[in-house]
Design a binder for these strands. Structure first.
Lengths: 159, 159
DNA sequence: ATAAATCATTGACTTTTTCAACTATCCATA
DNA sequence: TATGGATAGTTGAAAAAGTCAATGATTTAT
């Protein structure tokens, strides 16, 4: 007998296609796990008026690294013009500010306001919960191993 | 003094933003590694008139699993209408065919033609090379571990 | 037999991505 | 120190991808 939980999750997904050879493809696995995580992430972030994109921009603005928009674009694998739009909105909401670069006045350093920092703290907690839900199939050791492998693939042993 | 290799790769990316806390976020790491892999993948698949999406549909059509369009949509995290468009094109090129489901005549089973199988074999080899390039920072054991963790996160210990 | 649900499809609509200008600024060098 | 070429951010247009509701055919449940 079905319960109310049915509207939330497919308890038995019956993924017969898991047997296909493409299930061995790293690109496919990355895309699929990212897709399922994104759903949870965006759902959690919506409470703060954020999506994955704006959240990651806000996260970088909250670092002490003084990132420029171009650095953000490269790091987030986005077009510089997309960063403009994302920051425009965050700035309009008073969460981040643009400041001219110190050495290079063409560049703009994006940093979080006090309110941006407060929103980020809350959003970060929600994102952490969403991540835990997305990786519920793994235990703590495995999650650490997964992240370590992903970082190594991206940036080498150093990172 | 720069050489011709500069147009291909940033040798020293100087990713200072790696230090940001978001670099510990699984969702971000998945997105970023997938993004960099997609570039290589799509570049490799372009030789066969394919992209990641059409390649994965062709891959499923090449399995013996007799997938329906709906099953493909669910498995590939796509809207059913997107599957329609992808299959329309592959069918127009003579790489796959639609057949009515055996038990359910509403459903359509997508399978590869002989030509579709031939194209897929070549594309698969190219995709394998692209994946190897995308995961060049990991050794064989690590790649297997990464894939195993991704599969476990998606489908549990069974898969 | 009827009603409700499901599959593929279409079309409208929104969002995201991509790309080519453009201005301001920086850098190299003559 | 002036000139030329590169780079950062911005704008806007066009292409691609994603979302969603409606529809006809078929299946399933009652």
């Amino acid at each position: 007998m079905p319960t109310e939980a049915d509207e939330q999750l497919d308890i038995v997904p019956t993924e017969k296609l898991v047997a296909a050879t493409i299930s061995q493809d790293a690109g496919f696995l990355l895309a699929k796990l990212h897709a399922s995580g994104s759903v949870l992430n965006n759902r959690a972030l919506a409470d703060f008026g954020l999506k994955e994109r704006s959240y990651s921009v806000l996260a970088l603005a909250n670092s002490e690294l003084e990132p420029t928009q171009r650095e953000m674009a490269e790091f987030l694998s986005l077009d510089p013009s997309q960063i403009v739009a994302l920051i425009d909105e965050l700035e309009k909401r008073g969460l981040v500010i643009r400041a001219p670069g110190k050495q290079d006045r063409r560049a703009k350093i994006v940093s979080a306001t006090a309110e941006g920092a407060a929103v980020f703290r809350q959003a970060e907690a929600a994102a952490r919960e969403a991540e835990a839900a997305a990786l519920a199939g793994l235990n703590g050791t495995e999650i650490a191993a997964l992240k370590g492998l992903l970082r190594k693939a991206l940036w080498g042993p150093a990172a």
